[in-house]
Amino acid sequence: MDNKEFGLKIRTLREEKGITREDFCGDETELSVRQLARIESGESKPTFTKITFIASGLGMSLYELMPDYVDLPEEYLALKYDVLRTPTYEENKKMDWRDKILSEIYDRFYDELPEEEQLAVDTIQSFFDVHDTSEAIYGKEILKDYISQISHKEKYGINELLMSRLFLEHARFIDLETSPKEKFVFDHLLETLPGQVELVHPKDLFILRDVLFVLVGVAGAKEEYEHISAVIQTIEQIMNRTQDYQKLPILKMICWKYEISVNNNRENASQFYEQAVLAAQMIGDSNLLERIEGEWKGDSQRNAQ
């Protein structure tokens, strides 16, 4: 069954039940009216999550609705997770590797992916582009279309986490005090994301961890300190649960910045600096060690003024 046939089947079943698209999608946290329209017209191929939601709304089982559903290619998933899991720390060689993997995903898999997975790829590409260029022009259409899916949800899937990261990369360049809509979303993420540690699948905890790293960085830059301690504790919890300490140096750097900026405790900050240095030495990353030492020197000079 191709996309147009499947879309027509959904539309026919929905209309036979007398359900409007608006009623079918409800609050649009799982499926927006625009997404449903694209699926029904055959313009997009829905993912397993969307198909399951649609089947439930039609009062059918998944395989009654689409018995020939095929899972995502394992090779694509491996490449996607490699890109997300491997830190670059702004090293040109690592960034070139990441861009090469993303190009392979676009060339080999993108056109055959369902719309929600294409959205994931586009979102990943966009938040890397915003971060690397410091230009908030990338991913604007994604946020425009899907911001409601991260501004009210209490439980986040992978795509909502990725879109949250894209929003936070954009938030670096937004005056939140004069942007009430963006301030509402930012506050919602500050309050909601730490609690996702109990809701996210264990294999995806590293995605949540990395979103929290961006969140705490933006919160610190905006001097939004109220929830930073909870975010730091959640990152530590994820590291301990997954036994993945590759970003421990960055966490210790965040801790010293918090001690300097919020607690004005130079002694504690110095201890966290030493822990950051030791952690960077243990993972053998000389470029990260150089960055940590440079950050400490800058923070120390500013604190002494």
Rank of each mutant, 00 (worst) to 15 (best):
K247C: 04
K181I: 13
T86F: 01
K155C: 10
K155V: 15
Q149E: 15
V185I: 15
E177Q: 14
D68I: 00
D285I: 01
I19N: 05
L65C: 07
E104P: 10
L248E: 14
P67A: 08
T234P: 07
T20L: 10
G7P: 05
E198I: 11
D27P: 01
I283P: 06
L84A: 00
K183E: 14
S148N: 14
E115S: 15
K4H: 12
T47Y: 03
V218R: 10
M66R: 13
A219D: 11
K45N: 13
K45D: 12
E191L: 13
G220S: 13
V70F: 06
S151C: 12
K93H: 07
F127G: 05
I54L: 01
D129T: 12
Q271K: 14
T86D: 01
L72P: 07
N265T: 03
W97G: 01
F48L: 14
N264L: 13
L176S: 08
Y106I: 10
L162T: 04
R85V: 05
I39E: 01
L72H: 09
D122C: 10
F48D: 13
N264V: 02
E267T: 12
A221S: 14
I19E: 08
A120Q: 13
D204I: 05
E141P: 04
Y63Q: 12
A230T: 11
Y69L: 00
L289D: 00
L65K: 07
R11F: 09
L143W: 07
R241Q: 15
L248Q: 15
H170L: 04
I232D: 02
T133C: 03
S261R: 14
V200G: 09
D129L: 15
D122W: 03
I51Q: 06
I150H: 05
K297H: 11
E182C: 07
I51A: 02
G217Y: 01
F6A: 03
G42E: 02
N265W: 01
R108M: 08
D68P: 03
E91D: 12
Q118C: 11
E117P: 08
T234D: 02
K297W: 05
I142M: 08
E274I: 01
N3V: 10
Y110F: 15
T52N: 14
K100M: 08
I142N: 00
P249F: 06
M163C: 11
R14A: 07
D204H: 12
Q237N: 12
G294T: 05
D129I: 08
E16A: 11
D96K: 06
D71T: 07
V218E: 10
V218F: 09
F53T: 08
T88F: 00
S103K: 05
V83R: 00
A280Q: 02
I283N: 05
K140T: 14
M1F: 07
A120W: 04
